[in-house]
Design a protein around this nucleic acid. Structure first.
Lengths: 209, 209
DNA sequence: AGATATTAAACAAACGTTTAATTAACTTTT
DNA sequence: AAAAGTTAATTAAACGTTTGTTTAATATCT
């Protein structure tokens, strides 16, 4: 059963695409690294671009969106929803740093137009959900009159920023360059705490005097 | 005087590199777009990679770092320094969106190792300066005990986020897709205001009761 | 006339992809 | 259970393009 081989190729692919980009990764390089014949990639996936798309879809299935569920949960207050979303995002992104890096590249570069638009609309959808939550909080007078889409940009932008480069992240956190912050539970905790504190301070109206 | 031509090539280069990436941009494509002969690029710059580096250096000279100056300015309080840095960053980045996008790509992709390290150390330096300011504010009991490097990540990450994709930014701001948010003074104002509000709320200890 | 700029053409190398032949893994038949 | 048949997997080699770069000839300018 060669389904293992297919998955193995996709695993190597996401690593190479993440560090070298799509155009910067060659089939030969990929085949060598995955220890398979060059022809196998086209045999299994049809083309380099199809491999890319298949890999993205495969990885995305592990990262299904739970924002809509959180938004609809009426047992949670608005700030609790945001806390949940922060934990969710951080957890998901930290668990798939290579995949996340590939997505960011695809946002930044618009070579494969269809895919580019796909990533954009995914982001747009998430934005709308979070913006809706924040606006509800404002209407309920629980939140200050902030700029909802930019608040979301700050959450997601902070995570993107630390995930952009492992080296940079280690420098930021005063760790050795061989450290992997993305699978360090302490770093995860720290990032979540920072985001929550930031959002709480920015949004919540202090009612206690 | 063919210095115009050199600059023209660099101008076209930063546009193409920004939208298609370094590997995704070919010399022929570039020559056609700049309306020059293919050989002229190597004649003027030596190689594609040298053109890339020369262009980056050329553009970077317009974006000299003023953070150190701000940090050293003893006439400003810590929060005023941060406000200044926010305005500075936003202004600089919004004025050179293509260049900024290229830098982000170079952070994300580590193909040209030397350049990659250069961009990283530039970022690291800025981080240290801003972290120093925040730590000083904490020592002076003007700021809350926040996580300085992550606070800086949030500032820079927010800007990066909105600059990642023009389309996405327009969606965020409910503008037409043909709009250019980066040269819209209202957008600039809105972004600065959001960042200041966020940082103020997060850092400043309310002393008035 | 001499340096600089510009050109079209050619270069080798690398690219993604395909081919045609061979091996491995199952299915069916005996 | 062995043999024959059939499909799937794997390979090395070649394909046609495209890549960045160079060359050698021509044009432009001082």
């Amino acid at each position: 059963m060669s389904n293992d081989k297919r998955e193995h190729i996709m695993e190597v692919a996401v690593e190479l695409f993440a560090t070298n980009g799509f155009e910067g990764t060659s089939i030969r390089q990929l085949a060598q690294r995955a220890d398979v014949n060059i022809a196998m990639i086209n045999y299994y996936f049809g083309s380099k671009e199809k491999l890319f798309e298949t890999m993205l879809e495969h990885k995305a299935s592990y990262m299904r969106n739970r924002i809509e569920v959180v938004e609809a949960d009426s047992s949670l207050t608005e700030i609790e929803k945001l806390d949940q979303i922060i934990e969710d995002y951080v957890g998901r992104f930290l668990s798939q740093p290579e995949f996340h890096r590939v997505l960011q590249q695809e946002l930044l570069v618009s070579q494969r137009e269809a895919l580019h638009q796909n990533v954009i609309s995914l982001f747009a959808k998430n934005t709308q959900n979070v913006v809706a939550i924040i606006e509800k909080g404002i209407r309920k007078k629980q939140f200050r009159k902030v700029d909802p889409p930019l608040v979301f940009s700050s959450i997601i932008g902070t995570i993107n920023q630390v995930m952009q480069s492992r080296t940079l992240c280690n420098m930021l956190m005063n760790k050795d360059s061989d450290n992997n912050p993305y699978q360090d539970p302490q770093f995860k905790k720290r990032l979540i705490q920072h985001l929550k504190q930031m959002i709480h301070a920015q949004l919540l109206i202090e009612k206690d005097i």
